[in-house]
């Protein structure tokens, strides 16, 4: 038990610290693919450091809600990182929230961010909040459907148990898992504000979604938000790894497997970042009104996955 607590803490801290690294790696890959000279791997840390040190400018109208939001969002992401198995499956903290609660935590962070964006009362802020909620209301059910499909196979909505079942099953191809996997990728792209749904590096306000919401943030508040964005990407990647390629995560009580698990995690994350960069290079951002169709397709895939599970796998 105490070993579990240590592991739990270690893993969470690792996720928080390593998250900007994944963002840095993805940026590097993308720069290379696009024929630019890549920024150093540590660039995201430098940006965070710079932002933390800068003076914070707040709008006159900003209410305490606006100031509290970065902390709330960041804590939500840290907690989310605490219940997704990354290195080890032995997480004493995980029974307190299952995948549905995980979706709830992401939703809480998003609602706070959207409210904060509306707080100052600028045109871009409200526009960003509206678009973010639009993407969310389509992405969230699709994400839930993905989890439901997986939970039909694992008979549980507890992440460690899901990972346990998926990692230790006889080798078998589950078509429903394939469907769920593709749907999950589409949802993560939308939730993490990546191309083709949103462009994280855009400077054109009219096409922004996520960036439009945080336009009024600066200094340490902006740093916290940028960090939580990185952490969110990290948690989503870890979630995808845990559900669809769980091999290598150390089972309960097997400390010896930890170094291997760390290696596997680093390798998978590196591949994941590379794939993300490739896809972002190949695709263009789509028009906003295509986004519902994109997410509708994800939703459809997840539902089809569930139906196929009933037909072929039960």
């Amino acid at each position: 038990m105490s070993g579990g607590v240590v592991l739990q803490g270690l893993q969470t801290v690792l996720a928080v610290l390593a998250a900007p690294l994944l963002t840095g790696w993805t940026n590097q890959c993308r720069a290379r693919l696009q024929g630019r000279r890549p920024p150093p791997l540590w660039q995201s840390y430098r940006v965070l450091h710079k932002l933390f040190l800068k003076e914070t400018v707040l709008a006159k109208e900003a209410s305490p809600l606006f100031q509290a939001t970065p902390y709330v969002v960041f804590s939500c992401m840290v907690l989310a990182a605490g219940i997704v198995p990354m290195l080890a499956n032995d997480l004493p903290f995980s029974p307190v929230a299952d995948v549905i609660a995980l979706v709830g935590i992401f939703a809480l962070a998003r609602v706070f961010l959207a409210l904060a964006a509306m707080d100052v009362g600028t045109a871009f802020g409200t526009l960003g909040a509206r678009r973010e909620m639009l993407v969310a209301f389509l992405a969230e059910p699709a994400l839930l459907m993905v989890f439901f499909t997986v939970s039909l196979i694992s008979h549980s909505t507890q992440l460690p148990l899901m990972v346990h079942v998926l990692a230790h099953r006889k080798f078998a191809i589950y078509p429903s898992l394939a469907f769920a996997g593709v749907a999950f990728w589409m949802v993560s792209v939308a939730e993490n504000a990546r191309i083709p749904v949103d462009n994280p590096t855009t400077h054109l306000e009219l096409t922004m979604i996520h960036e439009a919401m945080i336009l009024e943030y600066s200094g340490r508040y902006l740093a916290l938000i940028e960090w939580s964005v990185a952490l969110k990407l990290f948690v989503y990647s870890a979630l995808g790894i845990a559900l669809f390629v769980p091999w290598g995560i150390a089972p309960v009580g097997d400390e010896a497997a930890l170094p291997l698990a760390l290696l596997a995690l680093v390798a998978k994350m590196a591949v994941g970042g590379l794939v993300l960069a490739v896809l972002e290079t190949l695709n263009a951002k789509m028009r906003l009104f295509r986004v519902p169709e994109f997410l509708g397709t994800a939703f459809l895939l997840a539902v089809l996955g569930m139906l196929i599970h009933f037909l072929l796998e039960s």
């Binding site: 191809i173 078509p175 469907f179 072929l312 796998e313």
Partner: peptide, 27 residues
């Protein structure tokens, strides 16, 4: 009615793919 045997799993996967393609054609 669940059948094991890896080749059948591939057939199942391809069947699912067929369904997916039908939907893609619809869209």
């Amino acid at each position: 009615g669940m059948i094991s045997g890896w080749y059948l799993q591939i057939v199942n996967l391809l069947a699912a793919l067929l369904l997916l393609i039908s939907f893609a054609m619809l869209a």
